[in-house]
Design a protein around this nucleic acid. Structure first.
Lengths: 164, 164
DNA sequence: GACAATTGTTGTCGTCAACAACAATCTTTT
DNA sequence: AAAAGATTGTTGTTGACGACAACAATTGTC
């Protein structure tokens, strides 16, 4: 009943090593295998770490990248609109924008239509910086392809398209 | 409901709402679409929220569940082995086990072979509790199926099998 | 004009990953 | 066997992040 080899038991993870394969590696996961959430969590950790590392030279994290990309594609959005679209708390977005504004990538322009809100724009510096970030992000995306395969990555995007 | 057509989810998210679809919803994501990390992050947030909600009545979070499951399937593991296998910091595991031990699900037994380490076991209470947790987790897994489709979930597990 | 809702902001709380340091205990070297 | 090094569990700190709550300024509604 215990860990009598849960079905497939990849047991050695040939070269695909997502986990440290040094010691105590062939431990049965039992019911954990077969849980989508567990696999997704582990994958997400890996993918974020690679993103952070690949964009380490420009010091941009995934969330910052998503904010910059969204503003770049839709100039003039309010903070509320950005927060809603990206699924982040508007309270959290405040700090993100503070940091991005400090680095001169983004500017908050007071909206004339609604004086409560700010229209968000990239600075000229932000535009050129984002171009570089996108090149690095594309490189990261190639890492993902190398990791799980080009075809699998495409399927993943298709399956999860509803969550973007 | 949407299990019939989870295939292509074009930028309108009809009823499949992973994001709040009330206002400002059709904002272009530009390069963000096509980034595996973004989709995976959003999906992971959704899946964890459903897990937490589905196992809310027993107050068990995903990480706690993974620890209990692993110990249940491999009694006697050391904290280091569990941490390595699940990819969590051993420092973090300390607090997790503190809480699980406080709730009488897990016990730390001093190892005779290596007096530095603890052998981890489920209590009798922990065993019966885990059985219930597994039933609830299975229910959560059905929610995932309803969300992305049975076939897509299976493919997801196949694609990400290397990360478990 | 009174009242409710929204927007940006500030703050708190709890989860989580990443480190660093430490005492106790192996393990290895000499 | 003693010294040096590595490992295990523990405590603590830092920072990113999600979830809330409260607030002033502003807008919308009645």
């Amino acid at each position: 009943m215990t860990a009598s080899a849960p079905q497939i038991a990849p047991r050695k993870r040939a070269g695909n090593g997502a986990a440290p394969s040094d010691v105590a590696d062939d431990i049965g996961l039992d019911a954990l295998v077969g849980h989508a959430g567990y696999a997704v969590r582990r994958f997400q950790i890996w993918i974020f770490q690679d993103f952070i590392k690949t964009l380490g030279e420009v010091d941009i994290r995934p969330t910052q990248y998503s904010v910059l990309t969204l503003i770049g594609a839709n100039p003039g959005l309010s903070q509320m609109a950005v927060a809603k679209r990206l699924g982040i708390e508007r309270a959290r977005l405040v700090h993100l924008l503070d940091s991005l504004e400090l680095r001169r990538y983004v500017k908050r322009v007071k909206s004339k239509a609604d004086r409560r809100s700010h229209a968000l724009h990239l600075t000229a510096q932000g535009e050129t910086a984002l171009a570089k970030f996108k090149r690095l992000a594309a490189e990261h995306e190639r890492h993902v392809e190398e990791k799980i395969g080009k075809e699998n990555r495409a399927q993943l995007l298709r399956i999860l398209a509803g969550f973007t």
